[in-house]
Write a protein that binds this DNA or RNA. Structure first.
Lengths: 138, 138
DNA sequence: TTGATTTATGCAATAAAGTTGCAGATTAAT
DNA sequence: ATTAATCTGCAACTTTATTGCATAAATCAA
């Protein structure tokens, strides 16, 4: 069986055309994608609603994660951990370039331990770093 | 002169009714606010567009900052630093409670230094911690 | 296989969040 | 008090996202 299809199965997702192509597209991109990026890329081959729903299933089944930012448009990227369980991808470091606007995951970085105020219980953390990325910094 | 009016002046903002009341409202709240929160609170006393535009002026003039999150709705909170310059409020730690959904700024925490990959230049950082807040953790 | 069952997709309609243009009102500077 | 700058409200519009439903496709079980 193909790798793409296998990945879908592992995440309890039925194998369909949109899903295979969307997953493929994510795997070919290092930076985070928006619904608009996908709609543009697939140029009417799939309905916009289907793309929204596919993003949602990918999210729910632990294939993608949503990246918090302040642009007002949802951005998604592949989860890098192997395994199926959701919410085990708890520490994210993302980098948003102020020049090219791309967001990428910095897997190699860890979020350092923090000492929260009394009675606060931390479940996960997302660090969004803004600046100039390696490509734009030339 | 009143404190509120003084703050507006310091931030180069004309003194108007909406601005005074919106600033007041932010000062009375420890958690971040959305446009919808304000619209609800002011219940038709100010136009929705005016509220949007006031948020934008507050943002541009360094009175508020936008908090990155993945809800798809813009959230704003007061900048705690004194002084007028924008972009000097570069390290934010925010806490989002999974129970009450409120977001608050954790001023006392600092984002630890990080070692970015080669050629990346960091300009600012936002750490969003999710979990259970002190009030809900009872 | 084939048929039954479950789930996904496309289309249309709707909702929610945010923006723009413009005329009249308000603020602040002289 | 007059003037110039800007803010506000209204209407229209755009962009992003969601819901309902009929049809189509994928999976399961015999």
């Amino acid at each position: 069986m193909q790798l793409i299809e296998n990945t879908l199965k592992l995440h309890d997702l039925r194998i369909t055309q949109v899903r295979m192509e969307m997953l493929q597209y994510f795997q070919n991109h290092t930076s985070a994608l928006t619904h608009a990026d996908l709609e543009l890329h697939f140029d009417k081959r799939f309905d916009r609603v289907t793309i929204y729903r596919t993003l949602t299933s990918f999210l729910e089944n632990g294939l993608l994660h949503k990246i918090p930012d302040d642009s007002g448009v949802a951005k998604y990227a592949l989860c890098h951990h192997e395994g199926v369980e959701h919410n085990h991808d708890d520490h994210h470091v993302h980098f948003k370039c102020k020049k090219c606007e791309k967001i990428e995951c910095l897997y190699t970085l860890e979020i350092p331990k923090l000492h929260l105020p009394k009675k606060y219980k931390m479940e996960n953390a997302n660090l969004l770093i803004e600046g100039i990325c390696a490509i734009c910094n030339n």
